[in-house]
Amino acid sequence: MSIATEQIWQRVRIFFKRIAWKKILTFSFFVLIATILWFMQIYNKSFETTINIPIKYTSVPDSIIFQDSLPSNMVLRVKDDGFAMFRYYFSKRDTLRIDVSSIVQNGSNKILQGNSFDFFIRKSLPISTQILNYEPVRISFAYSALESKKLPVVFDGQLNLSPGYFLNNDIKIRPDSVTAYGSKADLNKLMFAYTVSDTVSGLDQNTRIRYALANKDRIKFSPNIVYIDVSVEAYTQKTVEIPVECLNLPENLTAKLFPSRVKLSFFVGVSKVDSIKDTDFSVAIDYVGLQDSKQASVPVRITSSPGFVRNLTITPPNVQYIFEYKSEAVNND
């Protein structure tokens, strides 16, 4: 340690030795006592303040629409002691929950006000709190009944799979239909319920995606959330070689095809590649329409294949043909 550093530490030690710690501790003790007494006085004193309480409406029937907009929060002027005020400012306020079904089903009175309204508000406040006033002073639940219509759900989106993967099955929408509520005129314009438009990329495993239904003016959907199940599988390419048949060939003719066999290439999921057989496929040309044809070759078409294979291609795509009578040969020229 250098001489300069030693001198600095020496001065610091001398400074702290000169401090009257006993006086400081005594002063701090009395400050603490005064602070406690001040808080006790504040807590016992009544204060007024304005608070904002959110409103949550529960059990809202899907088959109705309210004639007036329902408020999302309530402003209250309250009076309470300092301790309660401390909680109002520094703790999360309870939500005012209103059971709508119990109100709309309770006779003809669809307005929440007076003592009934006070009861709902009181449930979200401490017992010691005095309510001076609140806004709004009433909530109207007057409603109109809606018509209903069941609609199939359509996925309005795009799925982009990772390289080397394809859809193993059609996407499934759960539920596949929803109930729409609205006026008869509005419902008559609807044929489907669409999900919100979206694009999902990089899918490489089975996935369930949550989607909201696209909003429609003056229309309510129940439920308004659906799930899209996407079945994804890695694929591989496979090739089989199969004979070409001639359909609708008269009994007195035989057909010679060049080549007589073609190759079928396709993509198949890795879980099914070993179960694929040549006999699962068939290809053919059709004699009907070829009697007067001047073409030297005809396209080959696939007549049967497993439903789980993709991107079928034929090599070669065309074959040449000669039809022969069983007693003599007749060229297509």
Rank of each mutant, 00 (worst) to 15 (best):
V244Q: 00
S144W: 04
S102D: 13
I322D: 07
R122T: 09
Q205F: 12
W9Q: 07
A193Q: 02
I65V: 14
N106W: 05
I8H: 09
M74P: 00
L253D: 02
Q295V: 07
C246Y: 02
V196Q: 14
A214F: 01
F120E: 00
M1S: 10
E135M: 06
Y227R: 07
A185V: 14
P71F: 10
A296F: 05
R77Y: 05
S201L: 06
G82W: 01
F141C: 06
M85E: 01
I14A: 13
N252R: 08
S275L: 12
R122A: 12
N248T: 03
N133M: 07
N106E: 14
I314R: 03
F16Q: 06
V240Q: 03
T49H: 09
P250N: 09
Y227G: 02
V230W: 01
E147N: 15
N52W: 03
Q291P: 00
S282K: 13
Q158M: 14
S69L: 11
A20W: 00
S305R: 08
D118Y: 12
S69A: 14
S327D: 13
A214Q: 11
V300P: 01
P61W: 03
P152S: 04
R97T: 13
R138E: 13
K294M: 08
F166Q: 10
P152K: 04
V330W: 03
S148C: 04
A214V: 01
V270A: 07
K17N: 10
M74D: 01
